[in-house]
């Protein structure tokens, strides 16, 4: 090194300087791109990926933005994100309220994918998890208002499994039932037909990404009745269970309350299975005694 002439020393200095310039300049560009990449992973809640899509983190590394899935979708459900769309540029997505997934049995979009971005292991469309439908607004849903809309339930391709109508008493009228559309996440594919067909101006039921739609129990959590079923008997001796006194006003009863000590259950007014007489014969204000 010492034997280098001043000229080669200057050249070396220049080389190091030029390299540093490049590394810094391109490094800054890379930093900007990297941060943009991180932003692009934040898929908007209402943008759904095609069936079989890998989790968003993996999807953006596997998808090569060719649009073959878009082309092979017979219902024009999918589109490729344009630069101004808040979805990573060139990647396929759909908006259920525009065009939902029709859940083709042969899943042509997955077959067309030249990468593993759409998992070719998915051969049963009912196993797809594009998202999970959530009845997000209980205030405007017609069935929650006590009407029989039922449209989301009826259009569901996995009817009676992914969406059921659960009957509960209508406490507003006191004499009717409400049939509440209830989503069961293990069967819901997230196709979005319910969201598409919701008759409201803004859909009360929407397909959301699972991480937004689902809670998660603590890993240590055990549900008593499941454990009871597994063990074949209750894990505790219920007769020795101490029930703390219910702090109620004098003379009040708690409908449907079960007292493990006595084994006695209060009757529940208006609930299924309660004595018929407890249900009022007329709605409030129409005569008769409630």
């Amino acid at each position: 090194m010492n034997s280098k002439s001043p000229k080669s020393g200057a050249a070396r200095r220049q080389f190091i300087f030029d390299s540093a310039k490049m590394a810094c300049g391109v490094g800054m560009l890379g930093l900007g791109l990297g941060l943009y990449a991180k932003q692009s992973k934040a898929l908007p809640a209402l943008a759904l990926r095609p069936p079989g899509a890998l989790p968003e983190d993996d999807f953006l590394g596997a998808c090569i933005r060719c649009g073959l899935c878009v082309r092979d979708c017979p219902y024009n459900t999918l589109e490729l994100a344009k630069p101004e769309t808040p979805v990573a540029t060139g990647t396929p997505f759909f908006n259920a309220r525009n065009i939902p997934c029709e859940m083709c049995e042969d899943i042509p979009c997955v077959k067309a994918c030249p990468t593993k971005a759409l998992d070719h292991e998915l051969v049963d469309i009912n196993k797809a998890k594009m998202g999970i439908a959530v009845l997000i607004d209980h205030e405007t849903c017609l069935n929650f208002l006590g009407l029989r809309c039922d449209v989301c339930y009826r259009v569901c391709p996995v009817i009676d499994q992914a969406i059921t109508l659960d009957m509960v008493p209508n406490t507003r009228t006191g004499r009717h039932a409400m049939f509440l559309p209830t989503v069961h996440s293990e069967h819901c594919t997230g196709c979005g037909k319910c969201e598409k067909s919701c008759v409201l101006e803004e859909a009360a039921i929407r397909v959301l990404p699972p991480k937004l739609a689902k809670g998660e129990l603590g890993k240590h959590y055990r549900v008593g009745w499941d454990e009871q079923k597994k063990a074949g008997h209750s894990l505790i001796d219920e007769s020795k269970m101490q029930d703390l006194p219910d702090r109620l006003p004098e003379g009040a009863v708690l409908p449907g309350h079960y007292d493990p000590a006595s084994g006695h259950t209060e009757s529940a007014r208006g609930m299924p299975g309660s004595e018929a007489g407890a249900i009022p014969r007329f709605p409030p204000g129409l005569g008769g005694k409630p």
Binding site: L33, A88, T89
Partner: peptide, 11 residues
């Protein structure tokens, strides 16, 4: 490699 995203395709 670092971001796990096909990086250049973003732009």
């Amino acid at each position: 490699a670092l971001t796990g995203v096909v990086l250049w395709e973003l732009v």
